[in-house]
Design a protein around this nucleic acid. Structure first.
Lengths: 376, 376
DNA sequence: GAACTTTTATAAAAGGACTTTATATTTCTG
DNA sequence: CAGAAATATAAAGTCCTTTTATAAAAGTTC
């Protein structure tokens, strides 16, 4: 794998990047003329930059175009397999590994059960399982861009530690406990933030959006002005701890009335002592206590969504594993939210996510894909 | 006033703009070498661009620097008076006019009382008073960049109308009713949005911030990732209609439990039938019913602020005319907010604005200043 | 199927904007 | 007052892009 020449001015690098990015974002392969025309560049400029990218192995030919009355154009696309990234998600009982190529396509996936006790030695276990995962799938380590790790935890970046992870029963743990056994570039991020990033990044039009993650905890992410928005402490989008019922239910965080106390999946499983499957089966059968809980949950969820809408005036995407079950109730959520809304007549801005299960794992791998593109 | 040559490539325009912007943002005048060094440009490039800007009248000499051992450097700064912008704020009982130069300094101000009945013919009145304002202050119309108009109203941009303006007792009025008599470029914006823009734009470091405006109504603005964030319908930052108390107090918007119902200045004046001055005098004297209301207001204000913090993880700036009275209570607000907060130990992120009175008028004028700079 | 048109691909020359180098100008220092 | 140091400007050079020219490939026409 040859590398691109580095003795180049910033301007040229930008032009080259814009060409690569264009091919990366394009759904299908493109011809040189399409690139030149869409990027408002001259043919020779496109030609030269493509030659470099081609020589470095970052783009490849993809057949010839049908003639439109003259010489047939060569179709070009990115070489999707010259690099890959791995995302790992850590939850209470599982490690999930996902490897994706530069087209963000899955090239391997694995799901490892954990004992509760193992959380304390998670770093070593993660590293070992990662090596197994790479070996089992014959993945070439020299092509590995990096390993992203998604955790259901509030991360304090400055201090390099986990400030709070109620679902993992962790607090004030150093991040290096998790990462010190890794021999690859790594990046640690909150699971909801990663999930929102994945949903947003894989949209054809990277619109602004607020992502509300409904899992054991409730979190989220904010993607605005064409970029993820992190905030002062990479703690934006913590919608779960907005107070929507003063003196309301007590939350795992110790405060009262948090959105999370009302809308997390744990509220269902812990309060009733049943699984989500059992709950939604019972709900279908009109179990009255299930219905009461569900109605209260949807009401407070709608309040939370409406508050996000008031602040950000953008689509609100519902994500997290609870979302798998929400499709039949979406119209009800929209109805309640619309009633609460001062400005909108409907709540079509509420949408369900595309990856209720693997969003955070994907998102944290995308961090490296994106970095690769930005530095090409 | 000569204009800059227009037959220029985009690249050169960017360089020229970066130089002008550098002088615009600098607190004091600068030398050529300072510009070259801070912008990583060579001296000849700086020299050439400055020559053009100088010839066009957009920058001026500002004396000579003390020598540091050789030829004295010429100090340069922007010509602040070659253009100006006017901001108008419309409220129930007043029109306020503010003219500012390119340094955002006030060059004229006027405050006109309105009869309640006049709201319906506001367009004509505004235009007439504007002409008077320009005449009285001898302002040169050829230098006028445009007239910004701030209204306490939700504006529907697509339909070009005021969707809702409870404090003005207006609904579904076309914007052209207000602007059709104006012979200048104009721009209409929500007052809280403009206020936030002014607070943000005049900060030396344009950090991210959420602006919460406390006036007769409660609104706000969101300024993130180095730019104002507008949202899908230019309706972001409508914090006043976040629900923070389900089934709580009824709001002017018709819903229940809105932040505005709890924290607007109208709550004080309407509920008690007194002015704000009277209220805060009575509060100092420990009037018990005043204290009860005030405590409830601060509690709900803190809930609202905390919710904004959870979503955006950035400074929350309190603005609007109620803010004039808040200084003695800031520590209490911070204390309550810190108690509500899951992550932060203190609430130093809550800050008071710099312009409790003229922020919206200034902000809407800044729209044109900013446009001028961006297109130089 | 030869000649022509159309489209794609590449090479050579030219132009724009910046930097480097050189030189002039001004001011300070000994 | 000569030399050093800093600022200001001019001339030459470099990089990257575009324009122009030309080659190559495929369809169209007679």
């Amino acid at each position: 794998m040859t590398e691109l020449a580095e003795t180049i001015t910033e301007r040229r690098r930008q032009t080259r990047k814009s060409i690569y990015k264009y091919l990366f974002c394009a759904e299908t392969s493109r011809s040189k003329q399409e690139i030149a025309s869409d990027l408002s560049l001259s043919m020779p400029t496109v030609h030269q930059n493509l030659s470099e990218l081609f020589q470095a192995g970052f783009i490849r030919r993809d057949g010839m175009q049908q003639s439109t009355g003259g010489r047939r154009a060569m179709r070009l696309t990115i070489a999707e397999n010259v690099r890959f990234a791995v995302g790992v998600s850590i939850t209470e009982d599982r490690l999930r590994f996902l490897a994706v190529n530069l087209r963000m396509q899955e090239i391997a996936y694995k799901n490892v059960k954990l004992d509760v006790s193992e959380v304390n030695a998670i770093g070593l276990r993660l590293s070992e399982e990662l090596e197994t995962f790479l070996n089992e799938n014959g993945l070439n380590r020299t092509k590995l861009l990096g390993v992203g790790i998604a955790i259901p935890a509030v991360i304090n970046v400055e201090l390099g530690k986990i400030a709070l992870a109620p679902t993992l029963h962790l607090k004030d743990i150093s991040l290096s406990e998790i990462t010190k056994y890794l021999n690859y570039p790594f990046y640690v991020s909150n699971d909801a933030t990663s999930g929102g990033y994945a949903e947003w990044y894989t949209q054809p039009e990277q619109n602004r959006m607020a992502y509300l993650s409904l899992e054991g905890g409730v979190g989220g992410a904010v993607l605005l002005n064409g970029a993820p928005y992190e905030g002062d402490n990479r703690r934006s989008g913590e919608f779960g701890h907005m107070c929507i019922e003063p003196n309301g239910l007590i939350c795992k965080c110790g405060k009262r009335g948090c959105l999370e106390a009302y809308c997390s999946a744990s509220r269902i499983s812990d309060d009733l002592g049943i699984t989500l499957e059992e709950f939604f089966e019972g709900l279908e059968l009109q179990n009255p206590s299930y219905r009461a809980l569900w109605h209260d949950l949807l009401l407070h969820l709608s309040i939370g969504i409406n508050n996000i809408r008031m602040a950000l005036d953008c689509d609100v995407i519902l994500g997290g594993f609870l979302t798998q079950y929400l499709e039949p109730y979406l119209s009800e959520i929209r109805r309640i939210a619309a009633e609460l809304n001062t400005f909108d007549n409907n709540a079509d801005y509420i949408k369900l996510c595309r990856y209720p299960k693997r969003a955070s794992t994907l998102g944290v791998a995308l961090y490296f894909i994106n970095e690769f593109i930005e530095n090409i």
